[in-house]
């Protein structure tokens, strides 16, 4: 088991409010790690420290280290734009660009200077197939992405992230706006994707975490309470607070 991401003594502040307190954890390559915890405990904030998306929120500050492949992503040498090409993100609400399905997928590649049409066509086909969207949309690849259903849009957003060939993909409650069938499709997809990527998923659904993740981290009030193999967390948590939360006795 290989460590992909190591977080050391991480604190995060919105203005003077500390949202994350002294987080330390390791995330393994080709595994799915789920973040669970009550609303407002800092899961999304923590997720965004891994691709530095918090920098778009004014007046915020990070302390500590996030190492990806042993390189501190907060060191001066790291360009956050480069970093985000390696660490993709899928948001809670599907946010396809108001462009065609094709343009959505090739956006990142084109931007990076890939112009060869055959290469781009190939990427569109393979990524659509790998998110199991190909059969559904093959006849309207050059139509607006906004004509897709919510679940299809979310899979397109995943395709868009995969097309960049990142190492890590962060998912912030990717199925919370979707129906059960779309949710199931995305869960199946994540299980496929972990062969090629390191995946972190924030979820409010304990069942979802149990179904798909290899590791589960439980957060409370900006602190990491515990992280362990998912079956241990759900069958035999070490911390009383984790047990209370997963058994629904929380609060």
């Amino acid at each position: 088991m290989e460590t992909k991401i190591r977080v050391e003594n991480l604190n995060f502040y919105y203005g003077n409010n500390r949202a994350l307190t002294n987080i330390n954890m390791e995330i393994y390559r080709n595994k799915i790690t789920a973040f669970i915890g009550p609303s407002g405990c800092g899961k999304s904030t923590f997720l965004r420290t891994i691709n530095r998306m918090n920098e778009f929120i004014e007046n915020t500050r990070v302390e500590g280290k996030v190492l990806i492949d042993d390189e501190d992503i907060y060191s001066k040498k790291v360009d956050p734009v480069e970093l985000r090409r390696r660490v993709g993100m899928v948001f809670q609400r599907p946010n396809p660009f108001p462009k065609t399905i094709y343009e959505n997928i090739v956006y990142g590649l084109k931007k990076n200077g890939v112009k060869n049409k055959e290469v781009l066509d190939e990427v569109v086909d393979t990524t659509l197939k790998s998110v199991a969207l190909y059969e559904e949309v093959k006849d309207k690849i050059h139509k607006s992405a906004l004509e897709l259903s919510g679940g299809q849009q979310q899979r397109l957003c995943i395709a868009r992230a995969i097309a960049m060939q990142p190492d890590v993909i962060l998912f912030d409650e990717p199925t919370s706006a979707l129906d059960p069938i779309s949710t199931m499709k995305i869960e199946e997809l994540l299980l496929e994707l972990k062969n090629d990527y390191t995946i972190i998923i924030v979820t409010h659904s304990m069942q979802q975490a149990a179904r798909i993740s290899d590791y589960t981290a439980f957060f409370l009030n900006g602190e990491l309470i515990e992280i362990d193999e998912t079956n241990k967390i759900f069958s035999n948590p070490r911390d009383k607070r984790t047990e209370d939360y997963i058994t629904g006795r929380f609060g």
Binding site: M53, F56, R84, R85, M89, N95, P96, F97, A161, M164
Partner: peptide, 23 residues
Amino acid sequence: SLRLGAYALGSTKFEVSTKIVVP
């Protein structure tokens, strides 16, 4: 959400402005 989506794909501010927001 569109801007953030583009940033998350490794866009610069200029790319977000010209390739996402203006279109």
